[in-house]
Amino acid sequence: MSCWETIADYGLRSIGIGERVLPREGYTLCQQFTLIGSGMIWNIYFGVLALCSGFFFATAVALGKASKNKLLQKLSAWFIFLFRGSPLFIQFFFAYFLFLTLKPISPIFDPFTSAWLGALIVLFLNTAAYSGEIFYGALQSVPKGDIEAADAYGMSGWSRFKRITWPTMLRLAWPAYTNEAIFLFHATTLVYFSGFPAWQQRGDALYYANFFADKTFNPFVPYPILAFYFILLTLLIISLFGLINRRLNRHLPQDSRSKMKLKLNVIR
C-alpha cells in the first residue's frame, strides 16, 4: 500500500471519513504521520472554537471584574478563581460526569456527554477565565491620559469604550493573550484522556500518538511526530497573532511598539 493510499484512507479518519479499522500491523511512518495529523483536526477544532467564543466572554468577565457593581465584581472574580485555581484535567472529569448525571433528566443533554460539545464548553469557560484575568490586568493599566483625552473630546459610554478603552486594552494584553492561545491549543490534548470517550476511535493527535506508542512499544516515533505537528501549529499561531499585534499597534511610532515577547506559561 503506497503512502498516498494511506493518506486517502486515514487522512480524515478522526472525523469518521475513510477506512474504519485502524491499522493492525506495519505501523509505518506514513501511517503514523497521517493518523496523528488527522487527529490534529480535533485539536484545531477545539482550539479555534474555544478561543473565538472565549474571547468575547473573557472581555465580559474582565469588564465585570473591573465594574463598580459589587455583585458583578464578585461573580467575575469567583468565576476566574474557580477555573484558574483548579486543574483543567479535573474540570474535564467533573463536567463529563455532571453531563452524564444530567443525561437521564432530559435528552437535551445527550450531545453534552460527547467530546465535541462537552469538552468544548469546558475549554470555552477555562480560556474565558484565563484570558479574562489577562484582559482585566490590561484594563487596569490603560493609561489615565487616554481616558481623559477621550472625555475631553466628548466621548463617553459605549463610544469611549469601543474607540479608546477596548483597543488599548487589547493592545496591552496581546502578548500575554498569544501565550494563552498557545496554551489553549496544548490543553486540547487532554480532552480524550479525561473521561470524554473517543467514539469509534475518533480521537485527537495525542490519542493516536498514544495508540501507536501502545501498539509498537516504541515512544520514539509517534511522540516526536506529535511534537513536530504542535511546533508547526505553535509557529502558525505566533505568526497569526503577530499580524494582529502589528495591526493593533499600527498607530504607534516604530520603536514604542510592543514587541511580541514569548514568555511561556505552563499547563493549567
Binding site: 495525542l206 515512544p219 504542535f230 511546533i231 505553535t234 505552563v266
Partner: peptide, 12 residues
C-alpha cells in the same frame, strides 16, 4: 518543552 504539550512529554 515550549511548543509541545507537556502531557505528551509525560506520556513519552
Amino acid at each position: 518543552v515550549r511548543g509541545v504539550p507537556d502531557i505528551a512529554f509525560f506520556l513519552f
